[in-house]
Simulated scan of single mutants.
Amino acid sequence: MTIYVFMLIWVIIFGLLANVTSKTVCVDSENMIYEQRVNLFFALMTFSVIIFFASLRSSVADTGAYISMFKSYPNDLSQIDGLLNGVAKRYPGFLVLTVILKKFTSDYTVWFTIIAVISGICVMIPLYKYSSDFGVSAFLFMASCQFSWMFNGMRQFLVASIIFACTGLVLRRKFIPYAIIVCILSTIHISALILIPMYFIVTGEPWNKRTMLFIGAIILAILFTSKFTGMLEEVVENTDYATSMEEFKETDDGTSIMRIIVESVPVIIAFLYRNRIKDKLTPIINLSINMSLVASGLYVISKIARSGIMLGRLPIYFSLYNLILLPWLIKNIFNKEEERLIYYIMFVLYITYFYYQIAVAWDGLGYVSKILNLKY
């Protein structure tokens, strides 16, 4: 896991530099709310290390499958008819984009680089624009292991990151352009369509009737686990996840409890201290609380339905907002002395989780790069 430790150290150092050089800006002129915003250069430098190693990988988790996919694709759109009638019919947009790129290069590293740059920048932009503590947000992206999506599951994360970059559309309630973008991205990964109905749950004040109904649905799913799981299998029978469910049905026991706890901490804190923060809430934090609630709910459902492969991957569309939410909560709930203590505890716990997830749960998440001549 040497590569990932290096990446974490890099993110911490440049995240600190970004914070040190940050400036105070007004984020809400009506309520006179001021927050720190970082320099774009340091924001880019912070994420550059993740993009770099994601771009130049030759073997990490499902990387081999993507390389085989890339090599098997033609370099002419006129030759994709057969693929569109096969497994690629579930992601025609991804197929077309790949074939167009392959027309210019047969090097899969260029393909990985383009996807890594888009994904990394699209995660960075909302943190740069909305996070009250960019350095902590970047640290959380690494230490919570959400960065691993750029190395494993890149097709879905490409979609999730682009949608995350479209946060402004949700804040301005631009549903039509948002829905159009989601529909286009669903041709890359069909699971993106979940964001259209969820749009109506996550917009509005936290803990409103819609979010309470969502919590009620989670409780019902828990009470009727067996019926819910059977219904779930019928729903996804012809989707992107059908094959995965069949292959992993015997071994998949759902999202780990550790992951559920880690991803649920921000929304639990927001709920416990809701009276303390209610007069400080901004539109982005309202949205982040609701997104965090949906992510936690989906993680819980994936556990009770024993579907980490299918439902356990859906929360990535929502859990990215925890990167914005948790630093804001720490700054706006606790006084200066408490804040320092909380940051220290957070750092220790997330570093522990990072080590556990990489070294124990993923057995080191071996990294190979032929270009860099690295093998860990």
Rank of each mutant, 00 (worst) to 15 (best):
F70D: 04
S264V: 10
K303Q: 07
V262D: 06
V294F: 07
L193H: 04
L293T: 13
T21C: 05
M69Q: 09
I115L: 15
G366L: 11
I80Q: 07
Y178K: 07
Y317R: 09
N335P: 00
V11K: 13
V265M: 11
A43P: 00
R340V: 14
Y353D: 03
T255R: 06
Y321W: 15
V99D: 03
V96E: 08
F70N: 03
I190F: 15
D81W: 14
I304H: 06
T24Q: 15
Y91T: 05
S22Y: 09
E30D: 11
S296L: 06
M150Y: 05
F6L: 14
N286H: 09
K209S: 13
F52W: 10
Q79F: 08
T243M: 05
I316A: 06
F41G: 00
E246N: 12
A270V: 07
A143F: 11
L232T: 03
I12T: 13
L314W: 02
A61S: 09
I260H: 04
Y273D: 07
L220W: 09
A54E: 01
S48A: 15
W207V: 00
L323Y: 06
V170E: 11
N31E: 12
R276Y: 14
L169Y: 14
F334L: 08
Q79L: 15
I3F: 05
P177L: 12
N335Y: 10
P315S: 06
F134N: 05
L220H: 01
N238I: 09
E234S: 13
L287K: 09
E338N: 10
P315E: 05
I289F: 13
K331G: 00
I316T: 04
S307F: 03
I121C: 09
K103T: 12
E247V: 14
F164T: 09
P74Q: 06
F224M: 06
S72R: 04
G216I: 04
E35L: 07
P74E: 10
R276T: 14
